[in-house]
Design a protein around this nucleic acid. Sequence first.
DNA 1: GATGAATGAGCGTTCATTCAT
DNA 2: AATGAATGAACGCTCATTCAT
Lengths: 203, 203, 203, 203
Amino acid sequence: MADPRSNGSDLRRAILDRTRRMLVEVGYNNLSMRKIARSVGCSATSIYLHFENKDALLHALIDEGMEQLNASLQEVAASHTDPAERLEALSRSYVDFGLENPEYYEVMFMLHPERMARYPAEKYRRARRNLELFAEALGAGADAEQFDVADPAVAASVLWAALHGAVALLLAQRVDVRFERDAFAETVVRHAIAGFCFQADPV
Amino acid sequence: MADPRSNGSDLRRAILDRTRRMLVEVGYNNLSMRKIARSVGCSATSIYLHFENKDALLHALIDEGMEQLNASLQEVAASHTDPAERLEALSRSYVDFGLENPEYYEVMFMLHPERMARYPAEKYRRARRNLELFAEALGAGADAEQFDVADPAVAASVLWAALHGAVALLLAQRVDVRFERDAFAETVVRHAIAGFCFQADPV
Amino acid sequence: MADPRSNGSDLRRAILDRTRRMLVEVGYNNLSMRKIARSVGCSATSIYLHFENKDALLHALIDEGMEQLNASLQEVAASHTDPAERLEALSRSYVDFGLENPEYYEVMFMLHPERMARYPAEKYRRARRNLELFAEALGAGADAEQFDVADPAVAASVLWAALHGAVALLLAQRVDVRFERDAFAETVVRHAIAGFCFQADPV
Amino acid sequence: MADPRSNGSDLRRAILDRTRRMLVEVGYNNLSMRKIARSVGCSATSIYLHFENKDALLHALIDEGMEQLNASLQEVAASHTDPAERLEALSRSYVDFGLENPEYYEVMFMLHPERMARYPAEKYRRARRNLELFAEALGAGADAEQFDVADPAVAASVLWAALHGAVALLLAQRVDVRFERDAFAETVVRHAIAGFCFQADPV
DNA sequence: GATGAATGAGCGTTCATTCAT
DNA sequence: AATGAATGAACGCTCATTCAT
C-alpha cells in the first residue's frame, strides 16, 4: 500500500507466505480463511480474488514447495558424478529441505490424504521427478556395482520413506530430545544408504 | 444401542470403542462429539461425564493404541531369541499394525504436536517402551556381532523413522500405486535392517 | 421462560410463528436463519434443535397451513349438501383463507418451485385432498345437471387456478386499488363458478 | 464476448439480453451481478455504469417484458374484430407468453412486492395498458350482448386473475402432472370466458 | 467507458461445550 | 449417571457494491 509500485500480486504473495507460516504454527486443522486473512491484514473475501478456494491456496503452496525442493535436488544431482556420492548428497539435501522449511514440508508431505484428494494428479509429476533423481543415482550405483539394488524405482521409494520418516518424526518432535538433531539426520542418511550396500558374508 | 442395564464404566468402554471405529470409518477430521454420541446411542453430554473433553477422549484412545501396539510387540519380542530375527519380527509387526489400523496410527503418530499439546508428556513413556524393544534387539544383535551399531537407542529411532516413513507414505497413498503394498512394506523392513549389517569391503 | 411449565416446544412454536410472520414481512429471499433467530430472541443454533434445516422449517410451516386449510374446507364441505352451494362455500372459504393468512398462503402456494423441490411428495397428498373436495362438489353438481363439467378433476384444478390467481394478485397488491378487496374476491368466486354453468343458447 | 468496438449502449443491450437469458436458465434466486458479468464478458463493475443497481437492472428487464407482452397483445387485439374472438385470442396470447417465458413471467408477476418496492409506480402503467386491452374486448362484448358484464374494468381483472392463476400454478408445477399442459391452459381460457357468458335459465 | 482490487455483511450450517434438571 | 436445551464462535463461501485508476 505504501509502495505505489506494489500491485495486486503482492497480496497473493503475502497470503501464501502467511499461510505457509500459519500452517506450522496452528496446524492444518486450525487453519481457516478468516485466520489467514486476519494474519495477512486483509479481508477473507480478498483471498478469493487470488485463490479459487481453500484447496487451491494449499495447492499453490504445494506447487511452490515442490518447485523449490526440485530445484535444490536438481542442482545437487548435477554437481555429483559418483552415484554413491550423489545419492548421499541428494538424501542430505532432501532432509535439509524438510528441516529448514517445515512449513512447506508439512503441506507437501504430511497433510491428510483425504484433504489432498482433489490435488490435481498431474501436479504430482513434479513430485515424481524428485523420486526419479534418487532412482537414477541408485540405478547408476547398481550398474557400477556400488549398490545391491534390484529395482531402482522401488529402491528410491524405500529410501524416500526412510528420509521422510526421519523428517516427519523430527518435525513432530517425537524423536528423543537428547539426540542432536543434525547428527540424527546424518545417521539416518548413512543408515538408509548403507541399506543398499552389499553386505559382508556372515562369518 | 447402549444396554440400559450397563453401568457407567460400560458407557466409557462403548464410547472408546465407537470412537475408535468411527475414527477408521470417517477419519479424524470428520469426528465430532455429537457424531460419536449418536453412534454410541447416548447424548453428547454424557461423553463429558467420562472424558473431560474431546482431547482427553483422544488421549485415552492413544493410550489404548499404544497399549495394544506394545502388547503386540512384547509378544513378538518374547517369541524370538535370535536378535536379528526378533528385530525383523518387531519391524514387521510395527508396520502391520500401522497398515491395519490406519486412522488409529494417524492419531497416534501423525497428528501435529500442537494438537496434542495437552497430551501429558508422561504418557509418551509407553511409546518409548516400544522403542526400547527395538533398542534391546539391536543391542543384543550388536553384542552378537550381527549388527554394526554404535548406540542402540539411536539406532532404534533410526529404524523407527524408516518404518514410520513407510507406513505414513503408504497410508497417505503417496507410494507409487504400481508397487504392491505388502511387498513394498517387506522391502522396507529388509532394507532398514540391512542398514545395520556389516558391509562388504569394497573390492 | 417465565412460565415454569413452559417446555422446549414453546420455542418451536415461537420459531414457527415468527417465521410465518417474517415471511410476509421480508419475503422468502430475505429470510435467513439468523434473522428468524434474532426475531424469536434465540440463537441461530437453537433453531436447529427443532428443525433439521431451513427447508424442514418451511416444510413444517406448509404442513401446518395445509392442515388448517384442509380443516376449514372439510368443515365447509360437510355443512352444505347442495353441490352448487357447497362449491361456492368452498371457493369462498379458500379465498378467505388466503386473504386472512397471507403468511401461510405464501409458503404454501407462492414459493418458488425450485425451493420446494425437496418438499416430500408424500406431503402433497394433503394438498390434493383439498382439490378433491372441489372435485367432489363439481362431480355431484354435474350429476345433478347443475354444472356442465366433463372431468371433475380437471375442473377442480381450473377452479383452483382462478381462485389462486385472485388471491395471489391481491396479496401481491397488483389488483387495482380502487376495487374493494372483498367485493373483488366475491366477483371472482361467482365468475369462476359461472364458468361451469350451462350457457344460454346464443339468440 | 462483447465486441470491443461496441459502444456503451451495446453493452447495456448485451447485459439486458444475457440477464434475461440467465433468468430463464438459472432462475431469479441464482442470479448475481458477478454471474451476469461473467456471462456478458464484462466486469461486474461495468454493469453499474448502465444500471444503478441490481434492482434497476431487473426493473429495466420488467419494462422490456411488459413492452413485449403488450406488443403481442396489441397485435392480437388488432387482428380480431369480434369481441369474443378477440378476448379469447388475448387470453391465449397471455397464457402462452407466461408459459413460454417462465422466469420472465416470474419476475414480472410473481415477485413479492417488497422486492419491487423501489419499482417506480409509474411504470406499472404499461402493465395496466395490458389490462385495458382485455377491458375493451369485454366492454365491446357487453355492448354486443355477447357478455354478461357489469364493469369491464373489474371483469378484466377477474379474467386476468384466472389466467394468472393458471400460469402461476403451471410454472410452479403444482398442477396434476397427468393433465396435459396445453390442454389444461386451453380449458382454463375457455372456462374463464364462459364465466362471462349469459347462463341458461335453470329448468 | 471500463476495470481489478477490495470489502463488510451475510449465508446455512456445525462445532465443543455448559447448565439446569 | 444422564440428558435436552441452549449457545457463541467459527466454518467456507457468495453477495452487491465501492473506489482508485
